[in-house]
Amino acid sequence: MSIAMEIDPQKIDAIIERWDRDPSFVIEMMQDVQEAYRHLPRVALAQVSRATRTDMARLYHIATFYKAFSLEPRGVFSVQVCTGTACHVRGAARSLDGLARELGVAPGETTEDLTFTLEGVRCLGCCSLAPVVAVGPDLHGDLDSSKVRGLVKKYRKRAEKMEGGNA
């Protein structure tokens, strides 16, 4: 399931214009680029750097500092296991280990076929459903380690359907 990899400079420029080339909004620009390409292509960062007169060293530090960004392409489905305290005390660590085993990747990594990226994330703010796992925008409450296999199967099927239907 490959994602469109060539970068459209017009699209990047539109993002930069949207934040009227203001250096104090480079983080917002980078969030839009991450949204569009599910990672921060080097050429895109270079284009932001030139247009806003901010040096690459600063953008590179931002790209590696904030959790929202990644320099490598992320999976179609970002599987985020909430590791907030409430979820932790209700077994989130076991859910994360289970998902890591099921997907065959360590937290922070992306599956070979670029379908899933597994991450432990900061509190998602719905602690009443602890332990919580978010897959893209949808939240799955009370997802203890025994329900891991079912969850992965469900999204694998959806990925195949999308693959066929070319999401």
Partner: peptide
Amino acid sequence: DEGDPGAFMDR
């Protein structure tokens, strides 16, 4: 920013 884990008052 409400980073404290287990806190969702601001949200």
